[in-house]
């Protein structure tokens, strides 16, 4: 085998390797999702199950501030009360109201966000409008409950927490595909 042939053999192998690595980049996506699923990280769209017999810590108060935002869709979205005071371990229900200000039917998905970050670990949501997509007809108004409890394990130096939801527009197909264009933001 002369050098030219030997060179093209190496070239071919390396090109194949390059293509494989390009594919590997994309394969990281399902791999990442699998890891998140196995380790239970990033679990935003599933209801928590209530552990029986939660102790209510009546000696302690936690103020839960409620926040609501929309991103790129003509909805008005707000909680009916801006904050609630709860005991850790106590099951609480709050209501959010959303109004479609446009003349078209819009699919939206709410994504939760917590402050402080630590709250994510200690907040159990039994019911939430954010577990599924919301379809609002033109001018429709909807009230939606969130049922949650804060576990007594929340560190005692935390007295005020914030639960925030942001509605994003979903495409009209059923797959959760969303197009936020740069101009909408």
């Amino acid at each position: 085998m002369n050098v030219t042939e030997a060179n093209s053999v190496v070239l071919r192998k390396l090109l194949i390797f390059t293509v494989i690595m390009f594919g590997f980049g994309f394969a990281l996506v399902p791999f990442y999702e699998k890891i998140c699923e196995v380790t239970g990280l990033n679990n935003l769209l599933q209801a928590d199950t209530l552990v029986e017999n939660t102790q209510v810590d009546t000696a302690r108060w936690v103020t839960v501030e409620l926040d609501a935002n929309t991103r790129g869709l003509p909805w008005q979205f707000k909680p009916l009360q801006s904050s609630v005071r709860v005991h850790p371990g106590e099951l609480t229900q709050v209501v959010y109201e959303v109004r479609n200000n446009s003349d078209r039917e819009i699919n939206g998905q709410a994504i939760p966000s917590y402050s402080p970050q630590l709250l994510g670990k200690h907040l159990k949501k039994l019911e939430c409008f954010c577990f599924s997509k919301q379809v609002l007809k033109p001018r429709e108004v909807r009230q939606m409950p969130v049922q949650f409890l804060i576990e007594p394990g929340l560190p005692t130096d935390i007295n005020t927490v914030t639960i925030s939801y942001t509605f994003f527009e979903l495409g009209n197909d059923n797959t959760a595909s969303l197009d936020i264009n740069a101009d909408q933001l």
Partner: peptide, 23 residues
């Protein structure tokens, strides 16, 4: 050759997220 294609994949995903509605 091990990692450059991975970067190419990452920015391609960014590009389709920006322009072709992927997520």
């Amino acid at each position: 050759v091990l990692v450059m294609p991975v970067l190419a994949g990452a920015v391609t995903m960014l590009l389709t997220d920006r322009n072709f509605g992927t997520n």
